[in-house]
Design a protein around this nucleic acid. Structure first.
Lengths: 165, 165
DNA sequence: CTTGGAATGTCAACAAGGCTGACTTAAACT
DNA sequence: AGTTTAAGTCAGCCTTGTTGACATTCCAAG
């Protein structure tokens, strides 16, 4: 499996390259969350609220259990966030039809409005980055990120991707 | 600037594509931090300790102020983390020669050992992802992440990159 | 030589958002 | 009828971020 025998150039797998990838993830993630964070800071909300709002918008009618699995937090953690969102009239919780134990979550009009503001800001940065890097880079970006996910999360990510397109 | 006039295919900038990029970042970052988090959970340490250790290892002798700027937290936050690391003998703080107000930070032998464990785990995942995606994808990955950073952070990232290669 | 400002450290208090554990309610399944 | 499941709740804890106030040390400019 040497370079000469396979024709591959494996220089991109050196420790130095990997460490640069690690640091790139760290710094980029800060930028990634910066704009929504600024918007949320003005309200009594944080990143956890943003995540809940995002995925409820993404999959309207999702159950609490499903949201729990996507976000990867405990129900106590999620509940705290969800309760304030429901109290503030951003999220609506409807008892399930088939299974009345389940609660299905929807954004209200106000919820959708906030989701718009947040995702507009986040998409603007992503758009700028995508445009600057070009379509080919974007493909690579997504390939690497996908390969970096835990298998469980990758399945969820791909399922969401399917449902959205 | 339409597609037909420029010959560009701008389909990669649709809201749906951007949202997939956003979700990819979210899920991938979870994977990115998962392995070090597991190691740290066994000790009394968290992600903040990991970050401090990483950048002290990366730039030995860095001052507290410099580390502050890189990590983007308050000195009180960093100090709490740094104090435990110094108490536990993972980090050494040396008074500056030229400017004795400054403290220069170094990893001790034990500190380097922990850094190794953490970065081995994190690099392993990055290596797997890089290998799965291929060299071209890695280039794109880095281009997009770099374009996503705040300008300040991009400068710091590039400076680190320079110093390391 | 004095003084202002910079770098650092420390104390206190607080908040967000994770976690565990224990427990209730209601509904569904067996 | 009894067990399991979905959801919610209460209490308490931890990490890691924040602000504000203040002390110390030391460099450098006046």
């Amino acid at each position: 499996m040497s370079d000469s025998s396979t024709g591959e150039n494996l220089l991109y797998l050196t420790d130095e390259q990997l460490r640069q990838g690690i640091e790139a993830m760290f710094f980029a993630y800060r930028g990634f969350t910066a704009d929504p964070d600024r918007i949320l800071a003005d309200m009594a909300y944080g990143r956890a609220h943003h995540r809940a709002i995002h995925f409820i918008n993404r999959a309207p009618g999702t159950t609490v259990n499903n949201l729990l699995a996507i976000l990867g937090v405990t129900k106590q953690s999620l509940n705290r966030v969800l309760r304030t969102l429901i109290e503030d009239g951003l999220v609506e919780s409807r008892v399930g039809n088939a299974d009345k134990r389940e609660r299905h979550l929807y954004l209200t009009e106000n919820g959708r409005a906030l989701e718009q503001r947040l995702s507009d800001a986040q998409r603007a940065r992503m758009r700028t980055a995508f445009r600057a890097a070009g379509p080919q880079a974007v493909v690579g970006f997504r390939q690497v990120l996908e390969a970096m996910m835990d298998p469980d999360m990758r399945r969820r990510y791909l399922a969401l991707k399917e449902s959205g397109s």
